[in-house]
Design a protein around this nucleic acid. Structure first.
Length: 591
RNA sequence: GCCUCUAUAGUUCAAUGGAUAGAACGAAAGUUUCCUAAACUUUAAAUCCGGGUUCAACUCCCGGUGGAGGUACCA
């Protein structure tokens, strides 16, 4: 029984009435006061019908009398500070020690099925830092939801059609001379991205040239032959022109190979990938049906709209006057197809907060179309990644490329390790280590920040390896493993051997943290917030480092207190590793 | 204009309505016969402004100010 429940039972006996869980507030006792845990009694005054001091004293006396694990108390105003017997702490540690997958629940077939959509790239250019945040958040919350017992399907919608990809195709056709990833040894997504950039540059030149002939910006844009050719290509694609389809398939496959490489480096994957080219007609079908049923209306130019004035929004375009789909039309189709495929209980879209409005409207429209699942859509909305001088803009070339960033992190890890003369034991596996450390730093840097806040990323100040960083936590784990290797590991197999030893404040703090782990995971799942776990693992590592610095853990002679310290170390390592797994970060065994 | 998010040490981040707001980086000073010094110990340093609710407010409410995003044929 956990401590909250235990106190609740006692209060029930004391006051002869049921006590709601929400009234039991427990926190770690502040270090200025004597005690281990503090019960906040203000919330209980209604039940005790006495003042804070009297209530604290009354509860303290009752607990002292009826619970042998509570050995002392002191009451200061409405704060009841309780001191627990050593046995209480030892028992907690013993219990944690017994469980292999401590804190992690197994998904059951009867538990909710949750679809998590993330990454969602366009196929005309490589992934950038914004995608990295998206991917890390999406992967992490998937893992967290799994660990709390949900069944999770990780999915991705690839925007593989539209004018943007036609621009790359046209550009490659005009200026590519048959370049392929093989011929030029370029990563496929970068190669295609280069042609997209080339298109935009040529387009700009063309506009500039026509403007000098006295046309306005808008006239110049309308007359652009490049843009007309791109539009023509889109029409050909929609009419399934074989040659166009062939180029499209070829170039998209280059991009997919490139993306796959980046995903693999990041250590993430998907259970099911949807392609917009396969889902976009589905949405149109539902819109037209909605129009026939009088849910939507048509304007004179033939475009179809939803009236959202009763919902407090402006009207929303659903099909253009030329009958082509817009973004939201496609999302309606994709959502429906996914429900057909999985009958999900919940679908979580990991998409930036710039699309809050879009997802609000998407739920409304699905509801209007009569899809019950509309109320089970969740937009996991996270903040933008900005650079010191503002937003990343592809047009201005201020995009931080994902592959470049990852490589830079790995190089930094190498540089730093070599400087410090680390990784000696690793010899032939060094590159693997640099990768774990470099990626760990990047992932932790991003995930430790509350998702709905914007991140300012300064590429010049590369991400650190000291302080509140992934490397610090990895390092703590590695030290623990080192201690365990050098100790008699059979000790760790002795379950429940610990009793009646003196443990100090630091040790209690660590045990308290360890005992919180399951609650922390649940909290991260409830709030869809990996940063809760990131900050928790840091606290644990920090606490352990302080403990480690003040205690001798290894000596030739093994006694009870050292067994205790080894068990404590072992379980700290276990929880750090489990926590990092939920964040999608690897831990090395040595470094 | 309207809507949403956001504001904490010089900087980057924490803080289920609870006690004297925690860390890290940077700055100043220290700790290696000992299990990995990518560590540890000190010191200085912060809740945007004005009201309100509460025994108790960084946290909730109202009004300002600064920043970001959105707001009908981009995705």
């Amino acid at each position: 029984m956990n401590i909250k429940e235990l106190i609740r039972q006692n209060l029930k006996n004391l006051y002869a009435s049921a006590i709601p869980k929400s009234l039991i507030k427990i926190q770690k006792t502040k270090k200025e006061f004597k005690g281990d845990l503090t019960l906040i009694v203000f919330h209980l005054l209604k039940i005790s019908k006495k003042n804070p001091e009297q209530t604290s004293k009354e509860i303290g006396d009752f607990l002292l009398k009826n619970q042998s694990i509570i050995i002392k108390y002191n009451a200061i105003k409405g704060f009841l500070n309780l001191t627990f017997a050593q046995k209480y702490w030892i028992d907690i540690l013993n219990n944690i020690h017994k469980i292999d997958n401590y804190g992690i629940k197994n998904p059951l077939i009867s538990n909710p099925l949750i679809i998590v959509e993330y990454s969602s790239p366009n196929t005309n250019k490589p992934l950038h830092l914004g995608h990295v945040r998206n991917i890390l958040l999406g992967h992490s919350i998937s893992e967290i939801l799994k660990a709390t017992g949900n069944r999770v399907i990780k999915t991705n919608i690839v925007n593989d059609r539209g004018i943007h990809i036609c621009k790359s195709m046209l550009s490659w056709e005009k200026w590519g001379n048959g370049e392929t990833p093989n011929s030029s040894k370029k990563k496929g997504d970068h190669l295609v991205g280069n042609y997209y950039t080339k298109f935009n540059n040529e387009y700009k030149k063309e506009i500039l040239a026509t403007k000098t002939k006295g046309l306005t910006q808008k006239e110049a844009e309308e007359k652009s032959s490049l843009m007309l050719e791109a539009r023509e290509m889109l029409r050909k694609w929609e009419n399934k022109d074989p040659k166009t389809i062939h180029i499209w398939e070829t170039m998209n496959n280059w991009v997919y190979a490139g993306f796959e490489e980046t995903y693999k480096t990041l250590g993430i994957n998907f259970d099911k990938i949807y392609y917009e080219s396969q889902t976009y007609t589905e949405g149109r079908k539902h819109i037209l049906k909605g129009f026939e049923n009088g849910i939507f209306y048509k304007k004179n130019d033939g475009s179809i709209w939803a009236n959202l004035s009763h919902d407090g929004f402006d009207d929303k375009l659903l099909l253009r006057s030329d009958n082509t789909s817009v973004y939201i039309t496609q999302d309606i189709g994709t959502a429906k197809l996914r429900f057909d495929d999985y009958s999900f209980n919940k679908m979580i879209y990991v998409v930036g907060n710039e699309q809050n409005h879009h997802f609000h409207v998407l739920s409304l429209l699905l509801n209007k179309l009569g899809f019950d699942f509309s109320k089970n859509l969740v937009h996991f909305s996270y903040g933008m990644v900005e650079l010191p001088d503002g937003k990343m803009k592809s047009r201005e070339g201020t995009i931080v490329d994902a592959d470049d960033l990852i490589n830079e992190m790995i190089q930094n890890a190498k540089k730093k390790s070599d400087e410090l003369g680390k990784l000696k034991e690793y010899a032939n596996k060094k590159n693997e280590l640099y990768k774990i450390i470099g990626l760990g730093a990047l992932k932790y840097f991003i995930l430790k920040i509350d998702p709905h806040k914007n991140i300012v990323f300064n590429p010049k100040e590369s991400i650190d390896f000291n302080g509140n960083t992934g490397a610090f936590i990895q390092y703590t784990y590695v030290r623990i493993q080192s201690i365990l290797r050098k100790s008699n590991t059979e000790i760790l197999n002795t379950k429940c051997v610990l009793k009646n030893i003196q443990i100090d404040e630091k040790e209690k703090n660590i045990i308290q943290l360890l005992s919180n782990f399951p609650e922390i995971i649940q909290e991260a799942a409830d709030y869809l917030n990996p940063s809760i776990i990131a900050n928790y693992t840091y606290d644990l590592a920090k606490e352990y480092n302080q403990f480690y610095n003040n205690h001798t853990i290894l000596r030739e002679k093994i006694d009870m207190i050292r067994i205790f310290r080894l068990v404590l170390s072992y379980n700290t390592g276990k929880v750090i590793k489990a926590g990092f797994k939920l964040l999608g970060i690897d831990v090395p065994e040595k470094m």
